[in-house]
Design a protein around this nucleic acid. Structure first.
Lengths: 205, 205
DNA sequence: CTCTCCTTACCGACTGGTCAGTAAAATCTA
DNA sequence: TAGATTTTACTGACCAGTCGGTAAGGAGAG
């Protein structure tokens, strides 16, 4: 009567790996990978821990693998969108950074955990590698924008990139979907701040 | 001769709580609070796990408490330094942010872990409370600088603060003391970038 | 009868923490 | 100064609890 007498009826369906990934991602984001137990994931799915191993033989690490792909792939795809490959380097840069803000804000609440390059969980090398090559792509756009003359030369380019993406990723620490500001407002504010700084422009509008 | 055959000689000595804190801070920063075991801490100290409980009866949580104080106190103290209370709001702001950069860079490699407001370890409410009031103090300086006319009004002040401190805190993810750039260079770069943005100034030098 | 999908029941490893016991140093005593 | 006693600082064994993971078997569908 308790709903899990012995086995489950229902037809061919079964637990979808995508659903497992979604739930795991949510829990990872709240409590971290190590802080999330397979039992918690199973509990949210409404099944027993062992049932997960039927669909995900690789266990927790395989779930992490799925979660990483889920999180990182859209970031990669954003690099191939037309505005990310056409136009001036400056235009491409603003597009890529803007998409980065959007992707982090809505859509996936779980980016933060994986992008923290410290900590040595399993697969962390994969995460690091993926992020490194993504950051490398963004760096080359930034470099092009500097060569183009749109971006200042007097601050180290690598430092600049790290600070810029650091600011963007840090939004994960406070953003809540039901907050005061909309995603668009935040994105515009971030880009504006990054481009022109916090000081009041000497030329009045 | 291994120095810890059975018991330790010399009185007064013993394991210093400060040393325990330093080691724990380092491990916490690498693997997180939950990811660090008492045995790891003990191992680095060259003693048994139980020995730690002699000096720190409160166990792991008490060590965390010490670590939090170690990390947060200098940040607090920086708010009381003369340049943080005298001068224009803009000057105070740049001083406070510059000190923040310095404190995060050299001195303590372990700030990052505690400043991540997610995750629910014990004492996390204390961490959050401390950070909230520190951030609140910085926010009021920023607000004053806006009222003063030195900082732009067209970007939400709370968003601005979060982005600014987010950028600064994010340095923990990549900074290494033996890197290419010196602390001073980084601090100047960060402040410059925050104040005037990444775009090239229209007025050439 | 078989195949899919799940549950029950369990294992070994590891966690934070406790406890009795002990060598050496400090202090007290004569 | 020599001996007795107490304190300091620690060890090794151990506990209850939790973890990821596995083996075996049962219920329902075709």
């Amino acid at each position: 009567m308790t709903k899990h007498a012995t086995a489950r009826p229902r037809s061919g369906a079964g637990i979808d790996v995508g659903v497992i990934t979604t739930i795991a991602l949510d829990l990872f984001n709240d409590s971290g990978y190590d802080g999330t137990s397979m039992e918690q994931i199973a509990s949210r799915l409404g099944v027993t821990k062992a049932a997960i191993y039927y669909h995900v033989p690789g266990g927790k690490e395989e779930i992490l693998h799925h979660a990483i792909r889920r999180v990182m792939d859209p970031l990669w795809l954003s690099l191939q969108e037309p505005p990310a490959v056409d136009g001036t380097a400056f235009e491409r840069l603003t597009h890529v950074l803007g998409r980065q803000v959007e992707l982090i804000l809505h859509g996936m609440p779980a980016i933060a955990y994986f992008l923290h390059p410290k900590a040595h969980h399993p697969l962390s090398s994969e995460v690091r590698a993926r992020r490194r090559s993504y950051d490398g792509a963004v760096q080359s756009v930034l470099d092009a924008a500097i060569a183009e003359g749109a971006i200042r030369r007097d601050v180290d380019a690598r430092l600049m990139l790290r600070l810029v993406v650091g600011m963007i990723y840090s939004m994960n620490e406070w953003y809540q979907p039901d907050g005061r500001l909309t995603v668009d407002e935040i994105r515009d504010g971030v880009l504006d701040l990054l481009l022109t700084g916090v000081t009041r422009r000497s030329t009045p509008s």
